[in-house]
């Protein structure tokens, strides 16, 4: 079959599955968010009584009805999905603002930070993996191995805390957030962009360290598997120089399985790392999801989780397409 026709059919098949998967995931998202006992009002009342004030029963019932919390679960689910289908992500009980507004406010910075982290991770991990594998058991390989173990074994929030402390103690600067104080609430301007670039690399490095270490390990292992295959020796026997042949053949084959992981980054780009973002006080979506979950702000949490799921499905789709495009054997299996 012509590769173009095959790819079109392959993509169409995957796209047809999309609504079904989304439906299933929406149920999961809703059930999980409803799982803890109580609802937003219970949490709200508890908070009120903790601060000394209280609400009478009639007021509580009125609020329950207002937010539809008195309805059975399946009705609540249907209402929720119905609103989402009309493009309404719902209203945050906690923030008293539309969810769409809350999410979109933080979306740009989240995605930007995600892309920085992603680029940093791949740009560093792939060359490290290649160098380690082609110079197996050399000093360089051992050095990167130690570096990678540290990277994998250290919790990222820990790295974040240590770096924050070091920066504060020795440089006297605060590295939290993505902006300096004067730009936090300022409208977008050239100065704000520059300020963002000055701040974003540190969280990107912290967030990317763990991923870089893992990816470099996987790349090294994949490449070691490929380096002794007969096609590599054949390329050498043809007279190709070592670097050209390594990059053209085994690296290409070692990258193929990694391509299937690219899709996973999409939801991560959207959420950012929850704990690190909280520690570093980053204005991204992760900490907002955490707050929504602790406060049982279920419509906000539901909206975020649902978008997260949709991006996971989309990411997998992108991975599949990339893989089929890169690896002719997969196109063959499909046709």
């Amino acid at each position: 079959m012509d590769p173009g026709v095959f790819m079109a059919r392959y993509i169409a098949q995957r796209l047809l599955l999309l609504p079904l998967l989304l439906f299933i995931f929406s149920i999961f998202a809703f059930v999980i968010i409803q799982a803890p006992p109580g609802d937003f009002l219970t949490a709200y009342i508890a908070e009120l009584s903790a601060s000394g004030s209280s609400m009478d029963q009639a007021q509580i019932e009125a609020l329950r009805r207002l937010y539809g919390l008195d309805q059975p679960l399946h009705i609540q689910y249907l209402r929720w999905v119905g609103r989402i289908l009309r493009g309404d992500l719902g209203f945050s009980l906690d923030w008293q603002r539309p969810n769409a507004e809350l999410i979109s406010e933080r979306l740009l910075l989240t995605v930007l930070l995600g892309l920085f982290t992603f680029t940093f991770t791949w740009a560093l991990a792939i060359p490290i993996g290649i160098l380690s594998a082609t110079r197996q058991y050399s000093f360089l390989d051992y050095f990167f191995t130690v570096f990678n173990y540290i990277g994998v074994a250290t919790p990222t929030f820990m790295t974040a805390l240590v770096l924050m402390w070091l920066a504060f103690k020795y440089l006297g600067i605060s590295v939290t957030g993505l902006f300096s104080a004067e730009y936090v609430d300022a409208p977008w301007s050239w100065g704000r962009v520059v300020d963002l670039l000055k701040h974003i690399w540190l969280p990107a490095v912290i967030l990317g360290m763990d991923g870089t270490a893992r990816l470099a390990r996987v790349m090294r292992a994949n490449l070691l598997d490929e380096l002794h295959k007969p096609y590599v020796e054949m390329a050498r026997a043809k007279g190709l120089s070592e670097w050209r042949l390594v990059l053209k053949y085994p690296v290409r084959l070692a990258l193929n399985p990694l391509v299937s992981t690219i899709g996973w980054y999409l939801p991560l780009l959207f959420s950012g790392s929850v704990i690190v973002a909280t520690v570093l006080n980053l204005p991204t979506i992760g900490p907002m999801l955490l707050r929504a979950l602790t406060n049982q702000d279920m419509f906000l949490a539901g909206a975020i989780v649902l978008i997260y799921c949709a991006l996971a499905i989309l990411g997998t789709l992108i991975s599949d397409i990339l893989l089929a495009w890169l690896d002719p054997r997969i196109r063959m299996e499909g046709s």
Binding site: K229, P230, Y231, E233, M234, A235, R236, A237, K238, G239, Y249, R252, L253, N256, L326, D327, P328, R329
Partner: peptide, 19 residues
Amino acid sequence: RGGEIALIPQEPMAAFSPV
């Protein structure tokens, strides 16, 4: 290599890159 002395390997399957 390849120009003056060429090689025919044992496993033609594995000696071509599959991609």
